[in-house]
Design a protein around this nucleic acid. Sequence first.
DNA 1: TTGAAAGCGCTACCAA
DNA 2: TTGGTAGCGCTTTCAA
Lengths: 351, 351
Amino acid sequence: MKPTLQAVADAVGVSRSTVSNAYSRPDQLSTALRERILEAARQLGYPGPDPTARSLRRGVVGAVGVLFTSQLSYAFTDPFAVRFLAGVAGAAERHGTSLLLVPLPDDAPGARRAVESAAVDGFCVYCAGDESWALDAIRARNLPFVTTAPRADAGPADRFVGIDERAAARTAAAHVVGLGHRRVALLGDTVLPGVPSGELRLADVTDVPHPTTRGRLAGFADAFAEVGVAWPELTLLSAAGNSRTAAAAAVAAVLAGPDRPTAILACSDVLALGVLDALAGTGGPPCAVTGFDDIAEAAEAGLTTVRQPAEEKGRRLAELLLDPPEDPAAGHVLLPTELVVRTSTGPVPRR
Amino acid sequence: MKPTLQAVADAVGVSRSTVSNAYSRPDQLSTALRERILEAARQLGYPGPDPTARSLRRGVVGAVGVLFTSQLSYAFTDPFAVRFLAGVAGAAERHGTSLLLVPLPDDAPGARRAVESAAVDGFCVYCAGDESWALDAIRARNLPFVTTAPRADAGPADRFVGIDERAAARTAAAHVVGLGHRRVALLGDTVLPGVPSGELRLADVTDVPHPTTRGRLAGFADAFAEVGVAWPELTLLSAAGNSRTAAAAAVAAVLAGPDRPTAILACSDVLALGVLDALAGTGGPPCAVTGFDDIAEAAEAGLTTVRQPAEEKGRRLAELLLDPPEDPAAGHVLLPTELVVRTSTGPVPRR
DNA sequence: TTGAAAGCGCTACCAA
DNA sequence: TTGGTAGCGCTTTCAA
């Protein structure tokens, strides 16, 4: 039987309130009495107020939830996610708040229940697809939340820290355009749900459901449209998952085909690295490749990419949740991005 | 005012127990009534039972704490820790348990309070130095816990998943010995607390307080002792922190000095990579370098190292906590390690 | 400076 | 199958 606060009170001969005060409001009692209480607690092996009971009573938990709309282990597998989390963790640490990583089961009702039953004071939602159900559940609980992207269903009070996906992607494509490339392929993760890795035809970029992927593809397309290369002339590739192997599989056929692109623009560095893998295993003329995020491996691989500040994104997001700004406009943050040109993008090879 | 279970009960005209059952024990009431209750809840915007109240009543939280005895952000900064966490997260996910990452303030009493007030059902303790105070606090709360290393103060019922640090380190050193190296340096992270990066004299390896570092250094020493190179003849280097820059700083002087070692054995890959950094910036004869852990960067850098299964370590540790084995002996796990020879270790250069 | 009373929101037992 | 009762362990007024 674990000793309770009551037991300590009895042992010392004071009321529960006084023992409670000894822990939570030291200024509410004499030092002598407090010492006596703490000593008795030590004797009894009382480990201090029960966190759950305290939370119930106070109505505050002291933890924020972090939601990844996919496997939780993804959070530790994807290099960008890891750096993002490092930022979140740093901010939480400074604030003295714990981080609750909530695993979401595959089934929708189970996932919703997971969100409903997380003991947290708020949520950081890492937007990785369609998580509106999660936001609904969070709103139903009346908990504050922040997201990593502006959302279509967002109200003016909803806070986020994101980037201008479209404009950022456009800079990468503009660079490729400037190198003279016109026959190009765009590669995204799961451009349409359920399609296998490989080529895909889509009437319009607006048909891409995933907002981040849609934004980046649209940005790529913008730069090519400007030089007269319209959407239908761009080869669209989809990888079944954000992994090097999926990316390599997605580009294999088109690299071997008759209309081999001279450049491939990927929606993430992980995908781009997969393209480089595929290229390394193939002969043929050089092919320019761009990525997105600028993870550590990108630099080593000489990958031209769009850098976004991963840790800062996490840090500022957590801060937005933990220290809400007075001004609602300050809750809408777009971080700067930067095109990083390395060796993976060269001019169109002469034939 | 948030609706409570009581409000739903009133709305439907049933008792609280029945509403509670509708959520927690669907088999305890008719489907029709359950539907009616759930519908009313939806109408009222009742998001389901309050997690904290439920935890208090049930005595179970549904989360395990993960304790890093250092900055929480370290967990996302160190590549080995990240892969370890991926393993923990995977196991937790399969088990439907959340992970609470608890930040520890710098001051001892605050850190203890953090452990005392974490709402969890148990702890995974990542051993990174002296965390006995944390274990004391956990024991006082009567919570189950598991650690990443066997501990001196462990009872037979205490569970851990570790490696044989000493034997593993010895294999790396034996490899270096086999290459003919006799004038060598050993590099550890914070070999003695508070000393700056650089050389250090220590009467005996047992004087190293950090158990992991001590074990690895002892293993290194073992292999050299076997060929007649005693402890005092080994150069001992300490890095102020497990970082590349600290490692590079720690080896700078000895690399420039008259008794330049022909090999440097580091207690972690991160440190070894720092040594390679320093070497790259220096002239002079080649110097063999070994690491420990086999993180992804090690392969790219051609680093000879001792591989330990990072993800498996995390996974099995979490499983040990979540599904305690019947047999207490099964709670003591030593994972296999493997020497991975790459290009960073060559024979002693002829002069 | 201390204590009594009133719950926080829920679940589990047992009886109907 | 349903409901009444009795707390889980704590904090917080408010009054003494």
